[in-house]
Structure formats: C-alpha cells, structure tokens
Amino acid sequence: MKKFLFYILLGLAAFAFLYPFIWMVSASLSEERSITDVSLWPVALTFDHYIKLFENIPIAGSFVNSVFVATIVTFGVLVFSSMAGYALARHRFKGRNLLFYFLLFTMTLPFQLTLIPNYILMVQFGWTNSFAALIFPGLLNAFAILLFRQHFLSIPQDLIDAARIDGCNEWRILFQILWPVSVPTLITVGIITFMTTWNDVLWPIIVIREEHLMTMPQLVTLFAVGGRSMGQIGMKLASATLLALPIIIAYLIFQKHFIQSMAASGQKE
C-alpha cells in the first residue's frame, strides 16, 4: 500500500514535468478559442496555426540556419579543441603549464564581461548580420579542451609511440589514431556543444537583425515577444512546438548519450 502511494506520487511528479509539453502540442493543434480548456488532447483538431505560422515567418529557413550554424560550430569545437587538448595532454613545450592555468582561469570569466566588446568586435569586422558572427566566436571553448585533455591523458603512451615509429605526424596521430578511440568523449563534447549552440538566443539577438539569417530560437523568441504573433496563443505554441521538436526527437533517440554527456559536464569542478 505504501509502495503504491509512492508510485502515485512519483508518477504525479513525472506528470508535472511532462504535462506542459503535452499541453503545448495539443493546444497548438486546437482551435484558438478552445485552447484554454484543452487538457491533454486537442479540441477541434486543426493545423491552422502551423499553416499560418509558415506563412508569417520563415521558420523553415531559420531551421536550416540553426542546423548549419550548430553543425559547423560543433565540428569546429571537436577539431580545434581536441587539437589543443592533445597538445596540452601529450606534448611538452615551453609555456604549456602556463597555458593550462590560463585555460582554467578563462573558464571562470563570466560571459557578461565580454558581451559588449565582442559585439563591437563583430561590428568592426563587419560580421553583424552574417553567420560569421554566430560561428567564429563559438569555434573553441575551454571546457571542451579540458575534457579532451583529461581523456587524452588516460590513453597509453605506447599507442602514440607506436604511431610515431610508423612515421605518423602529429595530425595523423590525433585524427586517425586518437579520435577513433575517443568516441565517447567526442560524443559528449559534440552533444553539449550542439545543444548549447542550438539553444543560444542572447548572442543571435544581438548580432543578427535580418530575418532570413536568424536562428530558429531567435526567430521564435522575436515572434513571441514582438507583435507578429498578434497575441495568438495557438501560433506562439506552434512555433514553440516546432522549436522543441528536433531536440526532443534527438533526445529520445540518444537519451543515454545525452544523460552521460550531462553527467560528464559535472566533472569540471
């Protein structure tokens, strides 16, 4: 009996986390005027809000923009951060320790500090209203370097020595020998980077003003905040559903990896 009650309570808790999403989807499929009395199932099923949404804002284009930006940034982070992580873990060179402490130091710097000057930098480069502003600042990050460094430290020296004897240069060692044995770390860094890039809103709002260049979260934010949604809840929720869908699908497929990535992200302290 006690156990039964326990599961009921736990079930209610889980419901509290899932209900808003279920409501969002079903409300976005309901007629505007009946949205408020929707509970779990659409009332007067309609795709109107989605149709109107596609007519009103270039949401498909913004999806492509987001995929493009997040993919390139993720790839860049994997390549460049693993390079730095590899050098910091397995090379001896002058200034290595200094660089490592410096890395730890920059990790403590809050982004609020660099927000304004970075925007001005973008203006000076002529990168406002271009993907360059979304891509270049994100191509490397200290946290990814740290994860790669930690991982590469655990790889046996024999593997690297053997490759060197075979005449591999450092690039081949990194990308052809080490990468294949580092898949979990690559996935972890990849998922975290992709997710944070995909979900970022503040930076796109600052540097992108042209609608056809906007990322999906940015477009949806401005749509929800601005007058374009004309106070229509159905369209707002439809835009939110479309924004949530790709990442939820990815999450359902790679649930284990997502959770492991997040667990790994906690190791930074």
């Binding site: 860049g76 993907f131 891509i135």
Partner: peptide, 20 residues
C-alpha cells in the same frame, strides 16, 4: 582529413564573407 579541415576553414571564411 587534413585537406578536409583546410577546406572547412576556407568555406567558413567564404560563408562569413558572403553573408557580410
């Protein structure tokens, strides 16, 4: 792989420029 990376770099630059 290297040449791919190199090309990626270039294409980033080109994209950035095109867009701006």
């Amino acid at each position: 792989l290297m040449s791919f990376l190199f090309r990626l770099n270039i294409s980033c630059l080109v994209i950035g420029c095109l867009a701006s």
